[in-house]
């Protein structure tokens, strides 16, 4: 479904959803609910190399590139973080590397997350965004390589 919508459209949807809540208690309840609904990542992906650095809790993030689009999966041992990353996935998954790289993700600020979260935790959220954009950049670079080079790289792996 979401592949029909642009990143901006999904961001707007989330901002509208959060506008319905009067209190942070309710916002957190919603975030926690999203966290609970995010499917658990298979154990085989819970590797050190998939961990996002800069978070107080453990966050694993994996990506897959299929037909020009990137798909994200993630998990965390902390539920609020899981809710936050589930929002990021909802916004960014199923888009092209360029769309992801250029996303400004203003919804994070618009729903008040950056001012509400303590600095260390806001940094964790930014670390997740950065990691997702890094994946997009990596796929883009890999994609733009001349064919000969790409096959050479595949062989060396």
């Amino acid at each position: 479904m979401s592949d029909h919508k642009t990143i901006q459209e999904i961001e707007n949807e989330i901002v509208e959803e959060f506008a319905l809540f009067d209190s942070w208690d309710d916002k957190y309840e919603y975030i926690i609910d999203m966290g609970k609904k995010l499917p658990a990542l298979e154990e085989k992906h819970k590797l050190d190399e998939n961990k996002v650095r800069g978070c107080q809790s453990t966050v694993w993030l994996v990506s897959e590139y299929k037909d020009g689009l990137i798909y994200f999966k993630a998990d965390s041992d902390a539920i609020i973080v899981k809710g936050l990353i589930s929002m990021l996935i909802r916004v960014l998954t199923g888009h092209t590397p360029d769309e992801i790289i250029n996303a400004n993700l203003e919804f994070i600020q618009k729903i008040g997350m950056t001012t509400h979260l303590a600095q260390t935790r806001a940094n964790g959220l930014l670390a997740m965004v950065k990691q997702m954009k890094n994946y997009a950049l990596a796929f883009k670079i890999k994609n733009s390589m001349p064919h000969g080079e790409r096959s050479a790289e595949t062989k060396s792996n």
Partner: peptide
């Protein structure tokens, strides 16, 4: 079954300062 960080965030939301980690 609860990560200390989740508790820390929700307590902060009620004006309660604890350390987690």
């Amino acid at each position: 079954k609860v990560h200390p960080q989740d508790i820390g965030i929700l307590l902060d939301n009620r004006g309660i300062a604890v350390r987690t980690g």
